[in-house]
Design a protein around this nucleic acid. Structure first.
Length: 429
RNA sequence: GUGACCGUAGCUCAGUUGGCAGAGCACUAGGUUGUGGCCCUAGGGGUCGCGGGUUCAAAUCCCGUCGGUCACCCCA
C-alpha cells in the first residue's frame, strides 16, 4: 500500500529546503539583534482560543479550522495562525513585559489549495507585548523590510492602514463611529454591491472595503475613509508610524481599504505584497497592532503588535525574482574508498573536525562509479584510497577542477586537503 | 463550499480515425590492470492515477472516484 500526502500539503526537500534553512537563519539572526527570543508553542490548542482570538468574523476560524476531539473529549484545533498561541503562553506563564518573541510554526487551514495557498503552510513571525508606543509598530515593519532586503528581494510593496480602536461594547470608539457612517453609506448603495455583499454587508461592513469585485470597488468610490474618522489618539499614532517610515526611507502606500481578516487588529495594520508574483495571492506577510487581544484572552490590559510571514509565499516571491539563497554544493571533498575492509569513519571524523564537508560512497563501488559520484556531488577534491595507498599509509589527493593529483601521507591528509581547497577556491572565485 | 482545466517511466512530454507502451533527460553498468566531467554501447524502470462500463480489442470512448493546477470566498 502506498500513501500520499494529504490534499494541500507539501513535502519540502533540497534544494528548496536548503533555501528555507538559509532564510530561517537570516531571520533568526536579524531578530536576535533586537532581543527577540524564540518561542515554541503547541501545534494544537483549545479550539476556543482561536475563536476568542481571531474572532467570530474570521473565515479562518469559522469555516477553515481543523477541529477535533482528543480521546478524552477535549475540543482542540490545529493552529490556523500564530499569534493566539503566543498570547496564550504569555498570559499563562505571566511573562514579563516588554515581551519579544519570534516563532517558526506551521499553520493549518482547511481550504481548497491553489497557487500560494495550502492546507498546511509555515510562518515566521514575531510578537511584541507591552509597548503601547507607535515605535513597536515601526520596529516590526522595519524588521520585515530589513529582512527582505537582506534576502535580496526587490519587487515588493508595503500597504498600511489604521483600523482605529474598538473596545467591546464601546460605541464611542472611533472604529465603531466609522462603522456607523460606513453602514449608512452602504445602505444607500446596497444594490450596487456585489451579489455576496448585497446580502451580508450589514454583518460586517468593514469587510466590504476588502472586496475586489468590480461592483463593490465601484460602489466604494467616494466612500468615507476610516482614517478620516480616527480619534485624536489613533490619528497621532498613525501619523507617527508613517512619519517614522518616511524617516527610515521605507516606502509605503496608504491603503484605506486594507482590512485584514482577523478581528483583533487595532490601529496599525499592514501587509507586504510581492509585485513579482503573478498569482492572485501576493501577500507575503501581514500584521499589525492588537491592543485588546491580551485582555480578551484573559490577560491584563497589555498592548501588542506582530506579524506573520508566509514562508511558502516568500519562496514563491524569491523564485519569481530568480533569487537563489543557497548555492553551495553538497560537499567540499569526496572520499573514494576502494578497500572494502577499510572503515572510513575515523578519517571522515577528522575532516568534520577540521570543518570540511566530506562525501563518500557508503555502498562502495568501482573506481569509475565512485569517481562519477564524486563529480556529481560538486566536490572540488577527490580523495582516493586504494590498496597501494593503504600499504604506504598515504592517500591520493585529486583536484577535480583540473585533474591534477598527488600523493600525501594519511597524517597530513586533512591539512593538505584544506590547503588544496583554499587554492582552488582562490583561483575559481 | 463552488467552478474550469489536467493525470502516460524519477523529470519534461509524444502516442494518428480505438489495434504490440515510446522519446529526451536522469539513473545503473561497461568502453583492457586504479581515475570523474564530453563521447559511445548496453541495461533497469510504467497495474497508462484508481474503479467500473462500451468493444473482438481501451492510454485513447463513457461514468464514477482520488490527486494536481488555477480561480472564487478568504488568507500567508
Amino acid at each position: 500500500m502506498q500513501f500520499q500526502s494529504p490534499t494541500g500539503t507539501l513535502d519540502i526537500y533540497a534544494p528548496e529546503s536548503d533555501e528555507i534553512q538559509k532564510l530561517v537563519v537570516v531571520f533568526s539572526k536579524l531578530v536576535k539583534y533586537l532581543g527577540y527570543k524564540l518561542i515554541l508553542t503547541p501545534m494544537f490548542e483549545d479550539a476556543g482560543l482561536f475563536k476568542a482570538g481571531a474572532g467570530q468574523n474570521a473565515d479562518v476560524v469559522t469555516k477553515e479550522m481543523y477541529e477535533f476531539e482528543d480521546k478524552s473529549g477535549r475540543h482542540l484545533a490545529l493552529k490556523p495562525e500564530g499569534t493566539a498561541s503566543v498570547i496564550r503562553a504569555f498570559v499563562q506563564h505571566s511573562y514579563q513585559t516588554p515581551f519579544k518573541a519570534w516563532y517558526l510554526s506551521p499553520a493549518f487551514r482547511y481550504e481548497n489549495p491553489q497557487s500560494g495557498r495550502y492546507r498546511q503552510h509555515h510562518q515566521l513571525g514575531v510578537e511584541v507585548l507591552g509597548p503601547t508606543s507607535y515605535l513597536a509598530d515601526v520596529e516590526i515593519i522595519y524588521l520585515l523590510d530589513r529582512f527582505y532586503k537582506e534576502l535580496g528581494l526587490k519587487n515588493y510593496r508595503l500597504l498600511i492602514n489604521s483600523m482605529g480602536h474598538s473596545e467591546v461594547g464601546e460605541a464611542s470608539e472611533c472604529r465603531n463611529q466609522y462603522k456607523v457612517v460606513l453602514l449608512k453609506y452602504l445602505d444607500q448603495r446596497a444594490e450596487l454591491l456585489c451579489q455576496d455583499h448585497r446580502l451580508k454587508y450589514e454583518l460586517n461592513p468593514l469587510r466590504v472595503l476588502d472586496c475586489k469585485k468590480p461592483d463593490c470597488v465601484g460602489a466604494l468610490e467616494g466612500a468615507p475613509r476610516l482614517v478620516d474618522y480616527l480619534c485624536q489618539d489613533c490619528m497621532t499614532h498613525h501619523e507617527s508610524v508613517l512619519n517614522a517610515l518616511s524617516d527610515l526611507n521605507i516606502e509605503f502606500e496608504n491603503a484605506h481599504n486594507l482590512v485584514r481578516g482577523f478581528d483583533y487588529y487595532t490601529k496599525t495594520t499592514f501587509e507586504f505584497q510581492s509585485t513579482a508574483l503573478k498569482s492572485s495571492q501576493s501577500a507575503i506577510s501581514g500584521g499589525g497592532r492588537y491592543d485588546n487581544l491580551v485582555a480578551n484572552l484573559g490577560g491584563q490590559d497589555v498592548s501588542g503588535a506582530g506579524f506573520g510571514i508566509g514562508i511558502e509565499r516568500l519562496m514563491m516571491a524569491l523564485n519569481a525574482e530568480e533569487i537563489r539563497l543557497d548555492k553551495s554544493e553538497q560537499y567540499d571533498c569526496f572520499l573514494v574508498n576502494l578497500v572494502t575492509d577499510f572503515m572510513p569513519m575515523k578519517l571522515i571524523d577528522s575532516f568534520i573536525k577540521a570543518g570540511l564537508r566530506i562525501g563518500y560512497s557508503i555502498d562502495g563501488g568501482s573506481l569509475k562509479s565512485q569517481m562519477r559520484q564524486a563529480n556529481k556531488s560538486g566536490a572540488d577534491i577527490g580523495i582516493i584510497i586504494g590498496a597501494s595507498e593503504l600499504e604506504s599509509a598515504s592517500a591520493t589527493l585529486k583536484n577535480l577542477r583540473n585533474s591534477d593529483q598527488f600523493g600525501v601521507s594519511i597524517d597530513s591528509l586533512v591539512s593538505e586537503a584544506s590547503k588544496l581547497l583554499a587554492t582552488i577556491r582562490e583561483k575559481k572565485f
